[in-house]
Design a protein around this nucleic acid. Structure first.
Lengths: 109, 109
DNA sequence: CGCTTACTAAAGCGTCTGCTTGACTTACCC
DNA sequence: GGGTAAGTCAAGCAGACGCTTTAGTAAGCG
């Protein structure tokens, strides 16, 4: 089994609904941690923890100015995930190509 | 926060390394549960549980013939995920467009 | 200066999750 | 029919996870 630590972290990060909501919010523009917390029914502390997970996973970039930490989506956040999906599809389709070849071939046995 | 039950299940399914390994194996072609278990250092029972999770998430289709259950990747397994990523990117880029417009505009105040 | 706002760190708690074990069931093979 | 292989079900367990509470730091503000 190949290990993909980044993919692992990335998927774990966006698998959680709250973190996905944060990601969705941030895709419309930067926001402070307390901004992210507002629509979210959970504590600011919890939101901070989510942001930290997202940051470790490379989904979000963060910068603190004064007392406010501003969060921003990392542009190529999902690249490795998209690549993984593309790889799956490639292998899957290659399989059908091979199958088609076998069926198209005149019986050579 | 918008709810996406399928996306939720899908991400939870492929966030686990063992389940991702199973998915990777299946993208090269169908396999029985015990085939999936062989390279995996975990019990057959555990593999079965993973397969069930993947099936509920729509990643895998399954059919039992005799005593062997054959597993197969669902072709459009990741569609909703790809859509979600595309949506994020769209909003993200739209934001830069707006920003560019503001900067390009001659000062209109 | 005191007051509020914005975040942070640590500890604790209940729940979920991945996994194992053990007991079956059912199919194939001789 | 007996033996083995493939899968299934149900409990149970240890660790991870999401969240809260509590306590604290530091920045802005009048």
């Amino acid at each position: 089994m190949l290990q993909h630590p980044d993919l692992d972290q990335l998927l774990h990060a966006i698998a959680d609904p709250s973190r996905r909501a944060i990601t969705e919010r941030l895709s419309t523009g930067p926001a402070a941690v307390s901004d992210l917390a507002k629509p979210l029914r959970i504590t600011l502390a919890a939101v901070l923890q989510h942001v930290q997970v997202l940051e470790r996973a490379g989904v979000v970039r963060t910068e603190k100015v004064g007392r406010v930490r501003t969060c921003q989506l990392q542009p190529d956040a999902f690249r490795s995930l998209e690549q993984w999906i593309a790889d799956r599809r490639l292998l899957w389709e290659r399989r059908f190509d091979r199958l088609g070849q076998l069926l198209d071939e005149p019986d050579a046995d």
